[in-house]
Simulated assay, not measured.
Amino acid sequence: MMNGLPYLKAGEGPPLIVLLFTPRATNPTGVARWSTMRMIRPFAERFTVYVVNRPPGLPPTTTMAELAAVYAQAIKATFDGPVNILGVSTGGSIAQQLAADHPALVGRLVLGGTACTLGPVGRQAQRAYMDRARRGRRPSPALATVVTESAIGRRLLAGLLWLSDSGGGDHTDAVTVLNAEDGFDLRGRLRDIQAATLLIQGGKDLVYPLESAGQTVEGIPGARLVVYPGRGHSGTFTDKRFAPDALTFLTAGRP
């Protein structure tokens, strides 16, 4: 535990905090763990990577600022000085809030597939996810709309996502985080982010549209935007360019 937060650790070097969205407030297992470790493997060659999760049982009314404060406490208790942060998707929303509210804790900031607020398609999908979870239905099929614009593709994917929820379980913690992101809008606070920032975005991201990503970068002083044309939301972080682009930025000025 990192000040009460579950985390996975890999590699050697200066710390790199990775913030992701996971359905449950615990370290991923099985295929999810394999996928997570595969994503961070290139970063572990240059950094000690900490994939830090949220604590279970947060109040359902938790805001993004309150969630960011939880991570800020863990960083203060664990590390001396600022740390680099990689925030992906909803984890990127948390990372932005953290950097705005606690600027002294963040060195360099890499954001992937995120923006200063959800787009309309992403917001609708997440609200549908929360509604299904609250009614005791398998929630993941609601996310099919943010992966593809094809009606046939959405139906097929919804079926696969329905199967992915076959293990059942409590989705309360996931709903808490998504509800916090539903109220997340940092457009008036972007100038408070002092960290050197890189945002990597897919040109066809339906969750956080490219227009919102551009607005995010325009608001953060000195921020840079890299766009992968034709890439959707999840395709951004699985793109073979993602890790090299992020690492080039994170290691700038280092021997």
Rank of each mutant, 00 (worst) to 15 (best):
R189N: 04
L186K: 02
A180Y: 10
L198H: 02
A180V: 03
T172A: 14
R189M: 01
D173C: 14
T176R: 12
N179S: 07
H171F: 04
G188M: 15
E181V: 01
G183R: 10
R187D: 02
V175H: 07
H171L: 10
V177T: 15
N179Q: 00
R189E: 00
F184C: 09
H171Q: 09
N179D: 05
L199C: 13
D182T: 11
D173M: 11
A196D: 05
T197H: 09
D173R: 12
L178N: 06
D192R: 10
Q194S: 06
R187G: 05
R191S: 15
D192G: 09
L190G: 02
D192F: 08
L178G: 03
L198Q: 03
T176G: 11
R191W: 15
T172R: 14
V177M: 10
G183P: 13
D182Q: 03
I200T: 08
V175D: 02
D182F: 01
L190I: 00
L199E: 11
N179E: 10
L198D: 02
I200V: 04
H171Y: 11
L199W: 11
I193E: 13
A174G: 11
G188E: 13
E181S: 11
F184W: 01
V175Q: 06
D185S: 12
L186W: 01
Q194I: 05
T176Q: 10
Q194H: 08
V177W: 06
R187V: 01
I200A: 02
T172L: 14
R191C: 15
L199H: 09
Q194P: 01
V175C: 12
R191K: 14
D182S: 09
A196T: 14
L199K: 07
T197G: 06
H171N: 07
A196G: 12
R191Y: 15
A195N: 01
I193F: 15
V175L: 10
I200F: 04
